[in-house]
Design a protein around this nucleic acid. Sequence first.
RNA 1: GGUUCGGUAGCUCAGCUGGAUAGAGCGUCAUCCUUCUAAGAUGAGGGUCAUUGGUUCGAAUCCAAUCCGGAUCACCA
Length: 589
Amino acid sequence: MNLITNLKQSTANCLQQLYGVTIQPEQVLVNATKPEFEGDYTIVLFAFVKQLGKSPEVLGNELGAAMVTAMPGVITQFNIVKGFLNFSISNQFWFDTIKNAHADNLLPKNNSPRKIMVEYSSPNTNKPLHLGHLRNNFLGWSIAEILKLQGNEVVKTCIVNDRGIHICKSMIAWQLFANGATPADTNQKGDHFVGDYYVKYNDAYKAEVATLLAGGMTQELAEKEAPIQKGAQEMLLKWEQGDAATIDLWKRMNTWVYGGFDATYKKIGSDFAKTYYESNTYLLGKELVEQGLTKKVFYQKEDGSVWIDLTGDGLDEKIVRRKDGTSVYITQDIGLAEMKQKEFNTDASIYVVGDEQNYHFKVLKLICQKLQLPASDGIYHLSYGMVELPTGKMKSREGTVVDADDLVAEMINISKEKTESLGKVSEFTTEQLNELYNTIGLGALKFFLLRVDPKKKMIFNPEESIDFHGFTGPFIQYTHARIKSILRKTGTSIQLNPSELLPLEKALAIELYNFPAVINEAAETLDPSKVAIYTFNLAKLFNSLYAELSIANAESEDKKNLRIQLGILTAATLQKGMRALGIDVPEQM
RNA sequence: GGUUCGGUAGCUCAGCUGGAUAGAGCGUCAUCCUUCUAAGAUGAGGGUCAUUGGUUCGAAUCCAAUCCGGAUCACCA
């Protein structure tokens, strides 16, 4: 059992024996003791002081004595400061913890693993990926890894929004302006190529509206009447009617985009067990709407449109099918939910989608529950905040977007420059060097996006490049490489004999001991930043120890072996923690 | 306007199931490479935890109100 759980349980037991009161172990507050006081763990007595009508001093002494007896060999002594009961944990306990830990067995034990789907990325096929997609991809990947480390089975999926008016805008602009050019002709990545036509569409649209306005038309009418806009709408209609030429063009342009996406996914390390396409899910969604009508979950208005009344759940009425019979956004998602569940039969389904869609997912879950689709209760929207620029929100139409490919390339380039200027890996081959630049550059970027609470929006300033010092990916990668460098020199076959732990050694042991609890917490809250913070603190502790104490030239053989073991465990924990963030750690850098 | 998320150091963020003197990184200043990788370590400085009131032995944390900012409330996706 975990030490903290144990302390809580024992406290509850002791209070029961001493005073005959029943206290739930969870009610006991156990904290790490502040450094300025003696002890390792602290129990806060105030709550019990009140309940039992005893002074903190008396209660603390009685409880402390009972706890020492209850946990022999673990608690050695206690002291009381105001209402805080501080326990000292025995040197032997921490020594045994270090000795018995194995690098390949640091993870939490899971007695009830689940099968969980994580859907993430969800790109549109009319423009390339940007910084917001990167946060989404890294979050999705990391959540999947964390859940796996916790012992669950994870299925990663992706839904591609490959149909709709936005796609038609790129298509019509291509028809008008491209003269049949292809990405190969312009030597461009396919997604960027198509994205350029989306921008061209908007430029042309603006120009047309301006012309119409100059001709005396009202703003509203001009926006409706712009020829290119009408063209896009006609194209959408043709697409839905299955017009062969339109479908051909659509397929052709989508193929270009997918080529570009695949290259980006490969570069940043994203993959999916299954990719779904909206063009395949919307029909099933319509079918489910039909079923919902029979089940009276939905109702039809006079004009033929289909709705659900969610006012009883504190929400509004929501349309699920237009009067012309075409599907809306949510229709497709209902179909997708059913399709995914049929195929993978998961216990829970996590959607990694931006917080601008909170309302949509609230509605989606409710509809699925009311339709009684299987596992609807397991639908969970992991809602993350937008990435904003200092000037505000990124807008692809206005060109204020940080492009994913550009940013990744820039990060890799910076890591190359830094590595070269430090000159520590001169013996690397070109291939090894390129791999290292990738590892460090992506490590910096992923860590930067994952180290903050997913729920919160974050600010990215393109003027200030992402750091490589301090609370960053490279700092942790560097610490790992440093440890590995030592271990290459000292070797790792060691015999551990008990010795008195120095404060830094003990602090590191305690931190290492906390790792499984951190993974569990991150998995329960779906929050990779918990892991990022933990790995940073662990690396920092090790670096302090490294600066203060020698490992290879320790004061005794026992100390040397102890610190080698701490090094082995720290390196392994850093490696696992970083893997939970989708970041590799190099052996040397 | 309804709903919802947020406001903590110059900047970017932790801390929020109430507990001891509110923490980190960056930036600033100072110190440390003849000794295991200086992408490092050590220290200094920097705070009205948006405001006001309440609950409590104790509030950055809980409650209420107010102010400021974001998202959303589409027959867009």
